[in-house]
């Protein structure tokens, strides 16, 4: 984790979706600061500065609220329905010496042995939950996949973590597998598999019932 980014925040006096829309129209992002058993504060951040900071890998941010400066960690982000724009940010108060649980993205490196045997790498988990000191949070967890052959799998327990970082998610979590690609189905095969018309639930039983009543009569 790099140096903390300093962001100037404005306190939001009015909360609620109507006011949040107005905040976004002004080029700002609504956010909330909470943690350390203090009262939560609704703020807004400059959208451009915040997004730029995120793109540069900053997760630790110094938020200046009035004259007070608070060290915070980006805990959660909410996106719009297209996943393009950030619509809300959760910031958690932290101390640099504090141990926190965070999710960190996995960065796959290298070309897997299996890909030369016409296999493909499938990423089942793209982030891991780790526990470490705030100052030691890594930007990414690097995972080398060059030794993975066809049929091999890597679990969370196999991932080498940097010093001072502990795994918080289950070690059995499947991260990466390498497997052969099944031949794509042709249009004819798909046609054969698909029913001509779907079975209607309960219609078969009804027909049987009618037959049995007719027999009794």
């Amino acid at each position: 984790m790099g140096k903390a980014l300093v962001l100037k925040a404005e306190v939001r006096e009015h909360t609620g979706s109507k006011h949040a829309v107005k905040v976004r129209e002004d080029g700002r992002i609504p956010a909330i600061v909470y943690g350390h058993k203090q009262e939560s504060v609704a703020i807004s951040l400059d959208a451009h500065n915040f997004v730029e900071g995120l793109h540069h890998g900053h997760r630790l941010m110094d938020v200046q609220i009035g004259r007070k400066k608070e060290k915070t960690l980006v805990k959660d982000l909410q996106y719009d329905y297209l996943g393009k724009d950030i619509i809300h940010v959760d910031l958690m108060r932290v101390d640099v010496t504090e141990t926190v649980k965070v999710t960190v993205p996995i960065d796959l490196r290298g070309t897997a042995k299996g890909t030369h045997e016409s296999g493909i790498i499938e990423e089942h988990a793209d982030r891991l939950e780790i526990e470490c000191k705030v100052a030691d949070i890594p930007e990414t967890i690097v995972l080398w996949v060059k030794d993975i052959g066809v049929g091999d799998a890597l679990h969370a327990g196999d991932v080498e973590l940097p010093e001072g970082v502990k795994l918080a998610s289950s070690p059995a979590t499947l991260v990466v597998t390498c497997h052969l690609v099944a031949a794509a189905k042709t249009a004819e095969q798909v046609e054969e598999e698909m029913p001509v018309a779907p079975e209607v639930i309960g219609e078969g039983e009804k027909a049987e019932g009618e037959e049995s009543t007719e027999g009794k009569e």
């Binding site: 798909v190 046609e191 698909m194 029913p195 001509v196 018309a197 779907p198 079975e199 209607v200 639930i201 309960g202």
Partner: peptide, 12 residues
């Protein structure tokens, strides 16, 4: 024939 459900509760 393309994709369709195998079983349905109502035809229409």
């Amino acid at each position: 024939m393309a994709m369709m459900p195998k079983r349905v509760k109502h035809r229409k």
